[in-house]
């Protein structure tokens, strides 16, 4: 059975079983490897993509449930989103492995709440683990992209 998936504005016929999580279809079948595997149980956020604009964990989303939805992955931002520019400006990534997921969560946040408060950032980003601990810069970059003051590190 083939599922038609709309990913980043393109239609892909997908041969995988409908119960296959989107994550593995993206990565292994379509070679859209920007979306990362971190836990497989919706506990880390590394696999975050958008389905009809809402952030979802692709490791827990069977492809069969996504037919007809508009899916956007990190590749679909085309490197042109202000959140991505803020990420580069603040040198947010360390190892970088979590950052696709962080960015997809942040993009969804600022679309919803153009000037997020600290509490709103906490709520929207708490599902995305960064083991490198880049949290201060993630926060600063989100605020910067949202046109808010962002603090940066100081040298004595």
């Amino acid at each position: 059975m083939t599922t038609q998936l709309d990913i980043n504005g393109k239609t892909y016929p997908v041969a995988a079983d409908p119960d296959t999580p989107l994550l593995w279809v993206l990565r292994d079948e379509l070679h859209l490897t920007g979306t990362k595997y971190g836990c497989g149980i919706a506990a880390c956020g590394a696999c975050t993509v958008h389905a009809d604009g809402q952030p979802i964990r692709s490791c827990q989303a069977p492809v069969g449930s996504l037919a007809g939805m508009k899916i956007t992955t990190i590749e679909g931002l085309n490197g042109a989103h202000p959140i991505q520019a803020a990420w580069v400006k603040h040198d947010v990534p360390q190892c970088g492995y979590c950052q696709s997921g962080q960015i997809m969560s942040a993009v969804a946040l600022v679309k919803d709440k153009p000037k997020p408060t600290d509490a709103e950032i906490d709520a929207a980003m708490a599902g995305n683990i960064c083991r490198c601990g880049a949290y201060p810069r993630i926060r600063a970059a989100i605020k910067d992209a949202a046109g808010q003051h962002a603090s940066s590190a100081k040298v004595a």
Partner: peptide, 22 residues
């Protein structure tokens, strides 16, 4: 997995000020 091995998340991370001694 990360459900049992709890790690620090955004809402638990402090504001950090760093300084380098010249």
């Amino acid at each position: 997995n990360f459900d049992g091995y709890r790690v620090l998340r955004m809402n638990e991370a402090p504001a950090i000020e760093s300084y380098i001694v010249p």
